[in-house]
Amino acid sequence: MSGFKLKKRKQVATAFDVNVTPMLDLFSVLIIFLLATSVFSATGETRIEVPFLSSQPPPKQEELDKTPEKTVNITIDSKTVKYQQATTASSAIKDEIEVPLTEEGLDKIQAKIYDIRKENPKFDKVTVFTQAEVSYESLVMVLDTVRELKPGRAPIPFPADYKMPVGVDPSNLVTKVVLGNVIFAD
């Protein structure tokens, strides 16, 4: 509130001036406190699972045949990325594309996974196989494609009974990414 004049019939000048200095002091202290204690995190995380060797027998093929589910495997090479889709009922490849390891190429792979999610909102797992010479940067690029939706694609909500894994953004395209070729590394 700055000093101002109140116009009355007889032009009597009355000035009000609020002392803002204490408020300014308080604001300064508050700003210093907030700047000192805030956490501006520029580091993110993407969750990965590694297959675990289990002594339990695998599920019987007859059971898998009853309710076949789509499986998606992605193989990363130093220059290309291969997308392969099969089902639990049969290991035969139903759909396959190979694209260059670029934003445009990866967009085509995301479109494929997006279509599967639209068809089956419970679909949540992609297995990634990475060749030895592929850099961490390229691997993260592919993981981004698998998880984070590109602009223009609306998130597909998971069903109400779906158990969301801890630490995963619910707007992700898939929630589980498994690194397939870890065991028996060369």
């Binding site: 520029a42 580091t43 995380e45 993407t46 990965i48 699972e49 590694v50 297959p51 630490g167």
Partner: peptide
């Protein structure tokens, strides 16, 4: 068997 891969966020 569970990992968090650290990355640099584009949007801070």
């Amino acid at each position: 068997i569970s990992w968090k891969f650290a990355v640099q966020k584009r949007d801070v």
